[in-house]
C-alpha cells in the first residue's frame, strides 16, 4: 500500500515538474508588476498591451506567420507527393530516399543551421523571408512525410485497385479515393509543419540577419538583455496557439483512425 502511494506521489510530482514551469509563465504574463516577481502583486493585461502596442513584436509575429504559412504549403505538397511515391517504391529505394528526407529529425540543429547559412550567405538569402522559408521547409517536411506515410501504410491498396478496375484513371483514383482517405493525416502533417516553422530558432539565429527577424528570434534577442514580462505574454500566446493546433491534430488523427477502421471493416 505504501509502495503504491509512493509510486503515485512520484509520477504526480514529475507531472507537476512538467506542467508548472509553463503554467507559471502563463500566470506571470498577467502580472501587473513591471518586473518578474511571483506571486504577482496584481493581475492585468498590461504586457499583452505592451506586446500589441509594439510594432517590432507585431512585425515579427506577422513574419513568423507568413513564413510558417509558406512552409506549410511547400512542405505539405512536396511531402505528400513524396509519401505517395515512397509507398510504391521497392524497400531499398524507400530506405535511401527515407534517410535523406527524414534525416533533419536527427542531425543536430546547429549543424543544419550553419550548413544552410554557409551556402545561403553566398546567395544573399540571409536576412530574407525566402531564405527562412526554404530552410524551414527542410525541417518541416519530415513531419508531413511520417504522418502521410503512416496513413498510406494503413490504406488498403485494393481500394485503389477497385477504383482503377471501375474505370477511374490514376489521377481520378488519387483525387476521388486516395486523397479523401488520407486527408486527415495530410492536415496533421501540415499542422506539425506549421508549428515546426513557427517555433524554429536555431536556423533563424543564423538566417534572420537584420532583415527577417522571426518571433522566436526577437524573443531570443530580448532575453539576452532583460527578462521582461512581455516575453511571458508572447510565450503564453504561442503556447495557446500550439495547444490549439495540437488539439486540432488530435481530432484529425481520430478521424484518420476512423477512416482506416472503415476500410478494413468486414
Amino acid at each position: 500500500m505504501t509502495g503504491r502511494i509512493a509510486f503515485a506521489l512520484c509520477w504526480i510530482l514529475v507531472l507537476a515538474f512538467l506542467a508548472l514551469p509553463i503554467l507559471i509563465v502563463a500566470a506571470l504574463s498577467f502580472s501587473s508588476a513591471s518586473y518578474l516577481t511571483f506571486p504577482p502583486p496584481g493581475f492585468g493585461v498590461r504586457w499583452y498591451r505592451a506586446y500589441l502596442g509594439s510594432s517590432e513584436w507585431l512585425a515579427s509575429t506577422w513574419l513568423s506567420f507568413a513564413v510558417a504559412a509558406c512552409v506549410v504549403v511547400l512542405a505539405t505538397i512536396l511531402g505528400t507527393l513524396a509519401s505517395l511515391g515512397l509507398a510504391r517504391l521497392p524497400r531499398a529505394m524507400q530506405a535511401a530516399f527515407g534517410a535523406l528526407i527524414l534525416s533533419p529529425l536527427i542531425v543536430p540543429g546547429i549543424v543544419v543551421a550553419i550548413g544552410i547559412y554557409y551556402v545561403f550567405a553566398r546567395y544573399r538569402l540571409v536576412g530574407t523571408p525566402v531564405g527562412l522559408v526554404l530552410a524551414h521547409t527542410c525541417l518541416a517536411v519530415p513531419f508531413v512525410v511520417t504522418s502521410v506515410s503512416a496513413s498510406l501504410a494503413g490504406l488498403d491498396r485494393r481500394l485503389e485497385q477497385a477504383a482503377l478496375s471501375l474505370g477511374a484513371t490514376p489521377w481520378g483514383t488519387f483525387r476521388q479515393v486516395t486523397l479523401p482517405l488520407i486527408r486527415p493525416s495530410v492536415f496533421v502533417g501540415a499542422l506539425f509543419a506549421f508549428i515546426t516553422s513557427f517555433d524554429e530558432l536555431i536556423v533563424a539565429l543564423f538566417l534572420s540577419g537584420s532583415g527577417a527577424i522571426t518571433l522566436p528570434r526577437r524573443m531570443w534577442d530580448d532575453l539576452r538583455f532583460a527578462i521582461d514580462p512581455t516575453i511571458a505574454a508572447v510565450s503564453t500566446l504561442t503556447i495557446v496557439l500550439a495547444a490549439a493546433l495540437l488539439g486540432g491534430a488530435h481530432i484529425l488523427r481520430q478521424q484518420q483512425i476512423g477512416r482506416q477502421i472503415g476500410t478494413t471493416d468486414g
Binding site: 512536396l78 507527393l81 517504391l89 528526407i101 533533419p104 542531425v107 550548413g115 521547409t137
Partner: peptide, 20 residues
C-alpha cells in the same frame, strides 16, 4: 513513384544536403 519523390528529393538535396 520516382517522379513523385523527385521534387522533394531534389529540394532537400539543393537546400539541405548539399549545403551541409
Amino acid at each position: 513513384p520516382i517522379l513523385l519523390v523527385a521534387p522533394l528529393a531534389l529540394y532537400m538535396a539543393a537546400f539541405y544536403a548539399l549545403p551541409l
